[in-house]
């Protein structure tokens, strides 16, 4: 079981309220990702759930029981830290066994569980090494192993992949997703990287300055962002925003078009601009187009074969049903 409910929780450090009153429901078995820019309170929220920090007000329920006052050791949750937080003086085996040892489980049962976890995580050959002798990816797996063995009600991950290089990050992302498929345990995963959020989550929680901006599945957020912030944060490259006469035409304060929803042509189209930088990735080409009356260059994603150069005049046309409209409060106009 792993159902977690946050009810009107707040958190202040001194006079600064980092989390204003916040409600959230996390269902058993869900993979929930908290995403938001750095400093928006994701870690704080996770640590409140973990019990590493006290809530300033409100309460936290885990599996129907009020856990607000329960110390972290007793909440039945497991956490994987950004720095992995492995015990440097213990072997991998001892690291993974530590929660079992703390729970007073007998030695034979400990060994069996450690062996099983090591097998799942491909760590069997490394059990007698110290964390210092492992690569970043292996350390990461030890941290996950330590979390798995105690069969927690939920896993908490705080930016677990941010210390890995790009290739390894993709691998570990898949491994964590697979782990979730096989364990079917609730996972709460914090990241500032919207790609991780989109690829892993059942449910994404977008945070800004401690507030929840939107909760939904990755595609819900992609297709119907509730406001301009979510629209700009989810999707890569970022959504283009236009104001002024461009928006007036659609009865909105701002309109947004994703780079993949713009078609580019040499001869005709709705808007005209001049190519600034073009990036050829092979599969795709990203054009950054300067338009009169728009501050930032407009990003266009087109096929890999297209051959525009710096200074070329191009015409852009948005797909008509893919235009997002926002009012002067930055809220979505349905």
């Amino acid at each position: 079981m792993g159902q977690i409910t946050l009810n009107q929780i707040t958190k202040s450090f001194g006079d600064v309220q980092v989390i204003p009153p916040l409600d959230l429901q996390i269902d058993d078995g869900e993979f929930v990702v908290f995403v938001g820019p750095s400093g928006c309170g994701k870690s704080t929220l996770l640590r409140l759930i973990a019990g590493l920090e006290d809530v300033s007000s409100g309460d936290i329920t885990i599996d129907g029981k009020n856990a607000t006052e329960v110390p972290p050791a007793k909440r039945g949750l497991a956490m994987v830290f950004q720095s992995y937080a492995l015990y440097p003086h213990m072997s991998v085996r001892k690291n993974i066994a530590f929660p079992l040892r703390m729970a007073g489980i007998d030695k034979a049962a400990q060994d069996a569980k450690v062996a099983a976890a090591a097998k799942v995580l491909n760590l069997t050959d490394y059990l007698d090494r110290r964390p210092g002798q492992l690569s970043g990816g292996q350390r990461q797996r030890v941290a996950i192993g330590r979390a798995i063995v105690r069969e927690p009600a939920a896993f908490l991950f705080d930016e677990p992949l941010s210390n890995l290089d790009a290739a390894l990050r993709v691998n570990m992302r898949l491994e964590i997703s697979e782990l979730h498929q096989s364990l079917k345990t609730t996972m709460i995963y914090v990241t500032h990287d919207q790609v991780e959020a989109m690829t892993m989550a059942d449910k994404i929680v977008v945070l800004q300055a401690g507030r929840i901006e939107q909760v939904g599945s990755p595609l819900e957020l992609y297709h119907t962002p509730r406001n301009k912030f979510v629209a700009g944060f989810i999707g890569s490259p970022k959504m283009n925003f236009l104001t002024g006469s461009f928006a007036d035409e659609f009865d909105a304060a701002t309109i947004g078009v994703r780079p993949e929803h713009l078609t580019v042509s040499q001869s005709d189209g709705k808007w005209v601009g001049k190519v600034g930088v073009s990036e050829h990735l092979g599969s795709d080409t990203f054009l950054y187009v300067d338009m009169d009356g728009v501050d930032e260059p407009i990003t266009v994603r087109s096929s890999g074969e297209i051959g525009f150069r710096h200074g070329d005049i191009v015409h852009l046309t948005p797909a008509p049903d893919k235009i997002h409209r926002f009012d002067n409060q930055d809220l979505r106009i349905a």
Binding site: A73, A78, M102, R146, R150
Partner: peptide, 24 residues
Amino acid sequence: EILEAARMDGAELWSEIVYVLTPM
């Protein structure tokens, strides 16, 4: 974070100091 990890792993204050902090 390492001491917090110990706490998450179910260590009481006493175990945290004896098994994690002191050896480190």
